[in-house]
Design a protein around this nucleic acid. Structure first.
Length: 270
DNA sequence: AAAGACACCTGGGAGC
DNA sequence: TGCTCCCAGGTGTCTT
């Protein structure tokens, strides 16, 4: 489900209810996520105050003075704030209860998500080698040019690679390439410096606009405030196979790259 | 080192 | 109504 804008929307929705609250209890109904929820999580998190809810890449980090809980939503995960006593439904795997009577409820039908614990989240193996945040200053044309020289993968797979830049998933990769006028199949190493600069701008623009719209709801994504994301209405190519391009009316095409559906306009993107 | 295939899992929709 | 097949917002791991 969630790419960077959806994770950021979730973070903003839940943070006001959680920051500076103390965890009273963890209810874990299903430990079998992508990796099993560690047995030590209850002990580590219970009684701790969560002072910050951060995002790094598509991870949500719940910082305490003793360490951080690391939550990834996978493909189908979502979080929301509930009253602690609200009955759990199917796939509601974890509740983190707080002393304000609220709880953070994690739901994940496909169980590709994960919930882990680290003394220092930045040094955790899953986060250690991640590329820069796309909305940070260290993600720029010069960086992308250096990183891409000699690379023969398609530019679409390249920008979806988290060791290059984080947060760009399957929806926004297609959208960003449309915005930059670059064909998704072009070899990363053969995109000119000038067009990489355009691509950086396009990635940042589409992510910012999606965050502003509360993310993209395709099926069942809801931000922490219970609202769906409205960016779907602004999608130019993703999921618009055989529909007319909004710029030139050419039929949008769908292909598969790296086993992921990819959408583009054959006229606008070269 | 880089690229590609596969794995994990459930549910929804299309087609018959 | 029910069955089968295909697809889905991610990403670590294994094989070439």
């Amino acid at each position: 489900m969630p790419e960077l804008p959806e994770v950021e929307t979730s973070r903003r929705g839940i943070a006001p209810w959680i920051e500076d609250q103390t965890v009273t209890e963890l209810i874990i109904r299903e430990r079998r996520l992508r990796w099993p929820i560690p047995a030590s999580l209850e002990k580590n998190l219970s009684g701790q105050k969560i002072h910050t809810v951060r995002r790094r890449a598509k991870y949500l980090l719940f910082d305490t003075n003793q360490g951080s809980a690391i939550l990834h939503l996978g493909m189908s995960g979502s979080v929301r704030i509930i009253d602690s006593l609200e009955p759990a439904a199917k796939h509601d795997h974890v509740d983190i209860r707080f002393d304000n009577g609220k709880a953070l409820r994690f739901r994940d039908p496909r169980r590709f998500g994960s919930l882990l614990w680290a003394l220092n989240a930045e040094e955790h193996a899953l986060l250690r080698d991640l590329g820069p945040e796309p909305l940070s200053a260290d993600f720029d044309a010069h960086y992308l040019w250096n990183k891409s020289r000699g690379r023969r993968v398609t530019i679409k797979q390249f920008i979806m690679n988290a060791s290059v830049v984080v947060g760009v998933g399957n929806i926004y990769a297609s959208e960003a390439l449309f915005g930059a006028g670059i064909h998704p199949k072009r070899a990363a190493g053969k995109v000119s410096a000038e067009r990489l600069a355009t691509l950086v701008t396009s990635i940042q623009s589409v992510l910012k606009r999606a965050i502003k719209a509360g993310g993209t709801t395709l099926q069942d994504f809801y931000g922490g405030d219970g609202e769906p994301g409205y960016f779907k209405q602004q999608l130019n190519v993703y999921g618009r196979d055989a529909l007319p391009c909004r710029m030139c009316k050419t039929e949008i095409r769908a292909i598969v790259l790296g086993q992921r559906s990819t959408f583009y306009c054959h006229h606008c993107q070269r």
